[in-house]
Design a protein around this nucleic acid. Structure first.
Lengths: 389, 389
DNA sequence: CTGTTAGCGCATTCAT
DNA sequence: ATGAATGCGCTAACAG
């Protein structure tokens, strides 16, 4: 008889009524074992099971408590691409490790720009958002901001008043370029990540640079530029081709080919991420060029694959996983130092910790977290060919 | 003045009051543009913005509508590992592509067994769950079932009445073994995935087999066994070592070494997943064995890396991405055929589609979806060494 | 087109 | 230790 009732969903109320106790008592049986006699609790739980009660409804609870125990994650790319991107994946590892630690769930919000559909952001029942590497003009980011929830941005965009976790892209890129320059390379080519979110593939002109919506790409480019200018190179003569890394390595391959078919051919390629660098590696192989004898290639990110492929990739290492972990920790208001002490203190509780609290989460203190990078020299870079200069 | 109010969060009510209209009107301004005059709507929206209204509170909405627009995903492994596992990642790609299509969000629920913490499952505000490859005795799965929401299981466990998306593991494994047997290999070794969730690494004995909680591992093992028995081999003499693939390739490497140091050395290794196979590849390399001349290796899954490494891996290909997509589509009650027509019909709506409806989601129709696999022969397998038999 | 009414299911005072 | 009352913020009927 109560079976059909189950279909229409049993509530706290129902089981309270069936037992002749109050809702509070039933609620306590589930949420506050110490506030109710063990015997009664047992009976309540038994009745609940018998009636097919699914447990306290999360939506009711969330509405009541105002907390969700969920952090929202917003990616710039289409989701399937994001899950193909080793950099994003590493970031996710970091985020998820922290989530797991504090028993928070992770809501991955699909957010196709241009669509009417950042509705998903408005609808997301979360305690805060992590925005991962979005363009400056993203509507999705605007929607996130409208939610007036705690927000952490990773990489970009740099919004005033919003904490940012990043690296010093300018400095890191400069270091990459200096590495090649120090090896006497004088003819360099650049494979850039997207400057705009229009999936354009091809040479970069000054208009694109001015309109650039991805600050990271711009910063890295400026880093390359500064190093080259310091070395006395005419940056205007340095070929720059743009290629969104998400389009798999094929585009990168093609783009690198165009670069390598120029006359005179570059002896060094600076790629703004490892995926692009790997595309260049394949292009070199395709053209019968030896790396690093004929051509040096420097990537960026140090994804796992970078150290595995042959020749292994010289690249800028950035702490990808840590980036995710720190973003999550900032959002959750957990200082790394406090973590362990807090953990044990919280461990006994069987409720979701109040991790997202206005108070704990202080926007003013340390709004930017800049992580360290370092150049990792591997096989893909070497001295410039002598006969060429 | 209303600024401080914002901190205590503005509600529909507040803005209705401030404008002297009803809550419904405000609600309509946000959710039903057609039910309200454009002019009034503009004014409402303007007032909302001015008062710092963050938009309709998702928790209130969810409680009211009973829908969340979210599908929950439960992994067996610790999250950071899951995001390292190419098989899980591919699965995620499939799931997320469908989510994106229907504008559903994806809630990744951390679910450490043994902890008091499948609380996260009870708290998850979702319309349904996808359970990805969990052990038979998982408490997390029990909690999911308690929620009485639509559930799709992928791979395992096989629960009566719960739709399952899987492959024919037994048949596929048998095919892998037959491949080696057909190449005249007679001394085979097996590297098995986990049979129990105790992170055990080492030889498999019969007790472990009996207690096995991962049905997939067992099915694959039986597939190997049947093939070998058909070929007249004494399966009891076939060495089997177990190694959870999530512990990176290092464990797999070690485990493969022990297998290869046996006397007489196996000429063929069957690995239950590509990660393990790659560990074996490294072990062979380490021992100076040539693959496939001295040793043949067959993997399982056909992860992207399998076709990239050298020697490329002979393996069983299973449609990993499709698996995720189909699981999501089943959960969302979207038949693949209907998808496109539905899409356009739904496109005009600006609400989340009622995708998770009891009616659409029919448990009885096609509860098991078995996807096709195929053996992909690459470089890692070849004829058994002649001198050895 | 607009307003009124009525809960959705829950956790939390504050009494007892 | 238990219960009664209150509203979290919203949307869906329905009535005007």
């Amino acid at each position: 008889m109560q079976q059909d009732k189950a279909l229409k969903s049993v509530t706290l109320q129902d089981i309270a009524k069936a037992m002749g106790v109050s809702r509070t008592t039933v609620s306590n049986a589930f949420n506050r074992p110490d506030q109710i006699s063990a015997e009664l609790r047992e009976r309540v739980l038994a009745m609940a099971k018998q009636m097919g009660y699914a447990g306290p409804n999360p939506m009711g609870r969330m509405l009541r408590t105002g907390k969700t125990g969920v952090i929202g994650l917003v990616f710039s790319e289409a989701l399937p691409y994001a899950f193909q991107d080793p950099v994003a994946i590493a970031f996710l590892q970091g985020v998820s490790s922290v989530c797991e630690k504090v028993k928070a769930s992770l809501l991955i919000v699909p957010t196709l720009e241009s669509d009417v559909a950042q509705m998903t952001i408005q609808q997301a029942a979360v305690d805060g958002f992590i925005v991962y590497s979005m363009p400056d003009d993203s509507e999705a980011v605007a929607k996130v901001l409208e939610r007036k929830l705690p927000v952490i941005v990773v990489d970009q965009p740099n919004l005033s008043g919003v904490p940012l976790v990043r690296i010093d892209d300018h400095k890191a890129a400069r270091e990459a370029a200096l590495h090649l320059l120090g090896l006497n390379h004088r003819r360099l080519g650049i494979i850039a990540m997207d400057l705009l979110s229009d999936s354009y593939v091809g040479p970069v002109n000054s208009q694109r640079l001015e309109r650039a919506a991805f600050e990271i790409s711009l910063l890295r480019l400026r880093g390359y530029e500064d190093a080259m200018r310091e070395a006395g190179l005419d940056f205007n003569k340095v070929p720059i081709v743009e290629c969104p890394p998400r389009n798999s390595e094929n585009d990168a391959f093609e783009v690198a080919l165009t670069l390598l078919k120029q006359d005179p051919r570059p002896t060094g390629i600076l790629a703004m991420c490892d995926i692009l660098a790997i595309g260049a590696l394949r292009a070199a192989e395709h053209l019968g060029l030896s790396v690093p004898k004929d051509l040096s290639i420097v990537g960026f990110d140090d994804i796992p694959l970078a150290s595995v492929i042959r020749p292994s990739l010289t690249t800028i290492q950035q702490p990808l996983i840590e980036k995710g972990a720190i973003a999550a920790e900032l959002l959750l208001g957990i200082s790394i130092a406090d973590r362990d002490s807090h953990k044990t203190a919280t461990a006994t509780t069987d409720k979701i910790p109040d991790f997202v609290m206005g108070g704990v989460f202080d926007l003013n203190e340390n709004p930017h977290k800049v992580l360290e990078t370092k150049l990792v020299v591997r096989e893909s870079s070497g001295p410039a060919p002598i006969q060429l200069r």
